[in-house]
């Protein structure tokens, strides 16, 4: 589905990723773990084409996407939910969700099916400004926006970071639902190791811009967690 081979990614002239390899299969939940500053966010940004440049190959469904401009990657149905969520503050909730559909090739600009059942709170706040929502609500909105794109792959950057605890569990359930029930391939950057271990099919641990460990969920042992993830 989505794979990188010997991927270097740059901010200015400094390579933040240095030869990353991974391959996420169709329908998999693929976790990207590691301490702060090892390149997890950069990896997601590189997939969207938001860094200053890459070397190596980046392929989606056997097609090389490394040279495409960002909007073209979105049109290949990659939904990106960045850290901090990047809700458009002056847009209403409705406008924020429908904005996701601008990346659709079929020209449909509709509220994605089932989203309002997934996030009832958004239905209530449909005409409020995105900037007036709480962090947790914004996160739900960001996921709804990504679903409006009709994504085959979702890139989630620390979706539960800085969110009130009662919503964290809800968001985790939604992520599992999107992956297991709707069959969307998910790349998940996560600090919450127990959650990642519980839901991931595969994972990689980044360290200083390189892949330190790769494996499937059962390989994510306490030793690995202690060596690469503990602070």
């Amino acid at each position: 589905m989505l794979e990188a081979r010997d991927l270097y990614s740059f901010y200015g002239k400094s390579p933040v990723l240095q030869g990353v390899n991974f391959k996420a299969g169709k329908g998999e939940l693929f976790s990207i773990l590691g301490r702060n500053g090892v390149g997890k966010t950069t990896l997601l940004k590189s997939i969207m084409g938001l860094t200053d440049g890459i070397k190596g190959t980046l392929r989606l469904k056997e097609e090389s996407i490394g040279d495409l401009p960002t909007p073209e990657r979105a049109r290949r149905r990659i939904g990106y939910i960045p850290q901090g969520r990047a809700i458009i503050p002056r847009f209403t909730v409705k406008e924020n969700i429908l904005m996701g559909a601008f990346g659709r090739e079929d020209g449909r600009r509709e509220m994605p099916e089932g989203v309002l059942e997934l996030f009832p709170i958004l239905k209530e706040f449909m005409n409020r400004r995105g900037g007036d929502l709480s962090g947790g609500q914004q996160q739900q909105l960001a996921i709804a926006r990504a679903l409006a794109l009709g994504p085959e792959v979702l890139l989630l950057d620390e979706p539960t970071e800085g969110i009130q605890p009662n919503i964290v569990q809800q968001i985790e359930e939604v992520i599992v639902h999107l992956n297991k029930k709707m069959g969307i391939t998910i790349l998940l950057v996560e600090q919450n190791i127990p959650f990642a271990r519980r839901v991931s099919d595969k994972f990689i641990v980044l360290d200083k811009g390189r892949v330190a460990v790769a494996g499937s969920a059962e390989d994510l042992t306490d030793d690995v967690a202690h060596e690469f993830l503990a602070f």
Partner: peptide, 21 residues
């Protein structure tokens, strides 16, 4: 107009949703 307002407020995320800024 919606695309323009989106790009004005956040160009990066707009491009991530297919808007050719």
């Amino acid at each position: 107009g919606t695309k323009l307002r989106a790009v004005i407020q956040n160009k990066e995320i707009s491009e991530c949703y297919g808007i050719r800024a």
